[in-house]
Design a protein around this nucleic acid. Structure first.
Lengths: 144, 144
DNA sequence: TGCAAATAGGATAAAATTATCCTAACTAAA
DNA sequence: TTTAGTTAGGATAATTTTATCCTATTTGCA
């Protein structure tokens, strides 16, 4: 469904959010340990998230990644996914046709609408804050 | 969502079904032309579908691929997808956790349930016959 | 029986994704 | 100002997915 990069990106962002609640910055090392991901690869994904203004980075000693507290409740899951995997999962045809719409549908076009709508709703209605709070309270988990 | 191989596999199976209605066998060449896919790669996928007993192959001169007419209405879209992509799309965790269930959920586990259920319902309730008839009647399309 | 036409399948290549390594650039603190 | 610790980013490698090529095997028909 999502790429590995996207999975890591979502989990990393959640972890950064949790630490940001406590005004702490985190390193790729800490993050990859916490979400069980390859460190250097995770660092690349963090770069992309910085470029998309989803997380902030502070270079140099005592640096690290963070998210402005006030911003955490405004970030939607969809933004993170789009930043890494693009919008193909929303817009692309289920069978890979270049052109696929009501006028020229692929065989599963109509059937697929509900799946895509459900996915879209879920990604748009879920906030980073919500995900982070559930991890913090032990309701959900980032690894194993 | 689905792999390229799976997209080709679904489209190829639909085309074979249409031709099988007319008691005609088809070659990978004909198929790949009709669904706009690479021929040799498509042939590999057809082999897999044969091994999974979804389509039949007849070797030698005047051979080709076909599906028993009576079988066409019994084949579900889910069977084709499972044969090629496996059942990860049903069962796997949305964020790639090895273990992810009600007792130990990933951050999006609950949110994801409805998406997965919708996908599952769609794949289980759609038959090959239905897809083939829509192509035949010009209601949907296999390429461009 | 021999030929032509078809699928089966192994070997290989190309492309995309995932992952690692190394150095440059930056920054707070001593 | 130097140093240590940190992110940025280019280069490269490994793996997986996608795609191609070639030959073996099979089969209907002349």
């Amino acid at each position: 469904m999502f790429s590995k990069a996207c999975e890591y990106g979502v989990k990393a962002t959640i972890f950064i959010a949790i630490k940001s609640f406590e005004n702490k910055r985190v390193s790729p090392k800490e993050i990859s340990k916490e979400i069980n991901s390859p460190q250097a690869f995770t660092a690349k994904i963090l770069q992309a998230l910085v470029r998309h203004n989803i997380i902030d980075s502070v270079k140099g000693a005592y640096g690290g990644f963070k998210i402005e507290k006030a911003k955490i409740s405004t970030i939607k899951l969809s933004e993170i996914v789009k930043a890494i995997d693009g919008d193909g999962i929303y817009k692309g045809c289920g069978l890979g046709l270049k052109q696929c719409d009501q006028d020229h549908p692929c065989p599963v076009h109509d059937k697929f609408v509900r799946v895509r709508d459900e996915l879209n709703y879920m990604l748009e209605s879920t906030t980073l804050e919500e995900l982070a709070l559930n991890i913090k309270s032990g309701t959900s988990f980032l690894k194993v």
